[in-house]
Simulated assay, not measured.
Amino acid sequence: MTVDAVRGGVPEHGRVPKYYTVKTQLQNLLAELGEGALLPAERDLAAAYGVARSTLRQAISELTMEGRLRAHRGRGTFVASPKLIQPLSLSSYTEALREMGHVPSRRLITEERLPAGSLAGDLAIDPADEVLHLERVLLADDEPLGLESTYLPAGRFGDLMDGWDATGSLYRHVADRYQVRYAQATERIETVLASPREAQLLNTNPAQPMLLMQRVSADQDGVPIERVRSLYRGDRIGFVTRLTG
């Protein structure tokens, strides 16, 4: 396959699927319409592009999965706002979104204590020791973006919830209450599909690709602080990092 073929999205044999041509035309239309605009009716678009409505729907479906379009039942399909692009760093979700001009918040779903079990190795504790589990929906401007499950050693952070508003920054709370600084982390990123429960909490389709990020954070002395599993909506958020050699 040539570089030009890769760049243009055209397969080596040169035959472009009809829906892909329509998708390209729709992308140009979205740029003209602008953020928040209502997409014209399917029958009108299918007629304008000279394709079957099933072909048009496939193109619209891909653009919706990519986060370029937003479907609202009973109202229609609208041009979506650009994805939030968050830096991969040790700064908190709260601080990162505020710097981008958005209003961050969280909704507490679960607070419980559990035996560490398989988490023990990551947290440098015994399997029988307890961990504090916090599950929170991450929001930006009241829109669900992610679902975060955080596990902390209960022996170290057992009174974490006392007098703390769980809608706020955990990083700041840990620093203020325990004088513990997040200094290093190991993170793994992969794509997955959400479970029905996760999709419901995030107000998205179970078929929507998600970004799964699993992190183990440690303090300035290298002692583990937390193990975090974060599930992000692939249609609403992306990540950026700076690499140097």
Rank of each mutant, 00 (worst) to 15 (best):
V174D: 08
S105C: 01
W164T: 08
I189A: 00
D141T: 06
S91Y: 02
K18M: 14
R106E: 15
P87E: 07
L38C: 12
G222Q: 02
L212Y: 06
S118K: 03
T167V: 05
R181P: 00
D44E: 07
L201E: 09
Y19G: 08
R98W: 08
D126H: 11
D165F: 02
L108N: 13
L84I: 03
A183W: 01
Y178K: 11
E32Y: 04
A185I: 06
Q25D: 10
D126T: 13
P11V: 06
Q200Y: 05
L30Y: 04
Q184D: 14
Y182E: 15
L114E: 11
T55F: 00
D221G: 04
G121H: 10
G121S: 15
F78Q: 09
G9L: 05
G101P: 00
P144N: 04
L243H: 07
T77E: 05
M1W: 10
H173M: 10
L147Y: 01
G222I: 02
A185K: 07
L97K: 03
A96F: 04
V216L: 12
V103A: 15
G76P: 05
P144S: 03
D4S: 03
L147K: 06
L30N: 05
R136M: 12
L108H: 11
A207V: 14
R75A: 09
L145A: 09
G155M: 14
G101W: 05
E112P: 00
F78C: 12
G34W: 04
D176W: 03
R106S: 15
L39I: 10
